[in-house]
Amino acid sequence: MKNKIREVSVLFIVAIVSAFLLSFVYKNTKPVIEEYASKTLNENLLKAFPDSQVHFETVKNDTLWKVYKGEAIVGIVFRNGRRGYSSLIRPIVGVDSAGRVVKILIPKEGLAETPGLGMKVTEGWFQEQFSGLTLGEIWLRGDNENGKIDGITAATISSRAATAAVREGLEKFKCYLQGGVIEGEWYVDDLIQLSGVEDVEELIEDRLWKAKDRFVYLSYGEGFISQVGVLVSIWKDTVLAIHIQCPEEGMEETPGYGTMVASIEFESRFDNVYIGDIDEVDALSGATMTCEAVKKAIKSGYEELMGGSE
């Protein structure tokens, strides 16, 4: 017995000493690490919006920043992701007040495209093509007649994904340029995107809206950890598009698994799906529970809100 106490106390003392040592190191390195992170972020933002007189204000962490010159908003910088060939391509895009792309930056970190092919999206000549383009022009030349982007030879998937990330991000965030700021619930900017028009009629507060040709409703489903909000635009019995609450908007599913559903890639699986076929949509592996929550939210919202309006 005495021996056991001795043994355990040795482990205990080692652990205590280790904990003290680590907290000391942590305390001393944390400010340096954070300073570096904010420095890199600021450098990246400045690369996307090169102007020495501006300062940036974070709207959504790692996703959206407003650019101020003095008191006035002169543009935004956003970061939007799209699945490439083998990883998520996340360009940082600067946009001026006229809605034109200033510059884009695709950081190499976290990117795992094929070296020599998809990796070429990080090269200067590819990114420079975006400067000065407006929404309708951000397409690959082969994909749209107004497109002004030359894809990378033999890496169409990666160049298409990078282009789509810029285009869809611009579409999603351009409302921040006009009429100042949109304040309110997490879904406000997404509501405008899903309705297609800016003035929507609110039928039921915070639940149901009517746009020109479609309805948009908000519904929640019980996920693995938290409630997952889904915004659905619907025309008759067909889902046009959905938006799933993302972690920045307060969704709290398991990071890296459940949170994966809040991706454009997964959301697009619901585009133009008949309401009765929602169950047929493929779930994401590793996020089955959260996917089920999304599907349930879509169906229950439909039954509750749309069923009565017929």
Binding site: T114, G116, A154
Partner: peptide
């Protein structure tokens, strides 16, 4: 694997 653009896009 080494020269994908020469082997698959040329």
């Amino acid at each position: 694997a080494s020269w994908p653009s020469l082997m698959t896009g040329n």
